[in-house]
Design a protein around this nucleic acid. Structure first.
Lengths: 212, 212
DNA sequence: TTTTTTGTTGATTGACCGTTCAATAAAGAA
DNA sequence: TTCTTTATTGAACGGTCAATCAACAAAAAA
């Protein structure tokens, strides 16, 4: 069976098996033996393609992160010059995309979150992602709100998204995606409404230049 | 040195050492050897007082949970018949109490969250706590909002609290407690404001009886 | 065909972990 | 004092895991 060009195939297989194994046993008990068995290969393959267990886990996190980035960006590029609210909704929708709300992915995310506090490479990946979410939200809110309001709105929405997501991962009934999106939309509406109130008394070009 | 009445002392010591060790090494690498060394005792003591590592970890989670319950209840009993907003603020303050926002406790909480998905005893503890937070919030919102609005407000606030808390645990600069409380207060204000708007058009006794 | 490259295996190895338990030490009871 | 209870130790044990690597298999190149 051995042939050339196996690398990308095996890598995908193993990442998929990693997600399924973490889903079933948890990160701590996702041994290379179990992962290899699930993927239908031997344990040696993992070291061969990923330089050990840690490399596989890091690649798995990178994979999820890439999916998240894609889910958000696909929706946003479709929008072009749409108003802030549309972009914020797109970011929310991307974060609650199907690729991010399956049980195995949510469990893996949570496990990586906890693990990233003591594991430098994962920490780096996780922080890049956190900042990306926050600064995207901040930029959109800032199109309608003064900077300090935009920052707080972004902080609040980022926390709300992560919180909904976390509680969905832990709840026995799983995440209700529709409801989560609605609650996040509502938050966006409230935050933008404050900007509108301000808009009635202050010309737009001035509001945009308000300090900090 | 051996004397009677060591049990409560050792238990406290070991739980404290567990928090510190998880803070430093993470849950997976918090071995009984490391915990015992930090507590200044031998490894055998852990099995003697907690029936093994799992027992110690469960006791540690219980300890944090008890502190959280105390932090919330102390503030609420002081309030008595205060308006919903005061109680909601008390619940928020309790969740951001000093006992819950130290680095070691936040890290341990997050580790337990992840672990609870595959460990039945921890899962039970975690769910009891989740439900308590949600139903407390729900009850207070329901004093001012129709039931389905109250439920969504409670779901949103619970997610916001957990999210702020999670992001605080992961952020390099730690949790800004003041800011987190302010963002949660703002959310409460917005949610209650919707009830007030409704109050202007619907008599209170009718609103309270709205279905679901 | 022979040789080389790529892919794959799985037993072995070395390290570490949680638990156990015989032994010990000190304090209180008799 | 002697006996009993409580507290504590830490070496030994059985088990598990990640990583390694010699050996093998099949395709591609010569």
């Amino acid at each position: 069976m051995p042939k050339v060009g196996m690398q990308p195939i095996r890598r995908r297989q193993l990442i998929e098996a990693t997600l399924a194994t973490i889903d079933e046993f948890g990160l701590a008990d996702a041994t290379i033996s179990r992962i290899a068995r699930r993927a239908g290969v031997s344990t040696g393959i993992i070291s061969h393609y990923f330089e050990g267990r840690d490399g596989l886990l890091e690649a798995t996190m990178r994979h999820i992160l890439t999916d998240l980035g894609t889910a958000v960006n696909e929706r946003r590029t479709r929008l072009g010059e749409a108003p802030p609210r549309a972009h914020l909704h797109a970011i929310i929708d991307g974060n609650f995309d199907r690729s991010q709300t399956s049980r195995s992915v949510m469990k893996t995310w949570l496990a990586f979150w906890a693990s990233s506090m003591h594991h430098k490479p994962l920490q780096k990946l996780q922080r890049v992602n956190d900042r990306r979410l926050y600064s995207n939200l901040c930029a959109q809110f800032h199109r309608a709100l003064p900077k300090h309001q935009a920052r707080d709105a972004a902080r609040g929405l980022a926390a709300l998204i992560d919180g909904l997501w976390l509680r969905g991962a832990l709840a026995p009934e799983g995440l209700n995606v529709e409801r989560a999106r609605r609650l996040a939309y509502d938050y966006v509406r409230e935050q933008l409404a404050h900007g509108d109130t301000l808009a009635e008394t202050t010309p737009r070009r001035h509001r945009e230049m308000q300090p900090d």
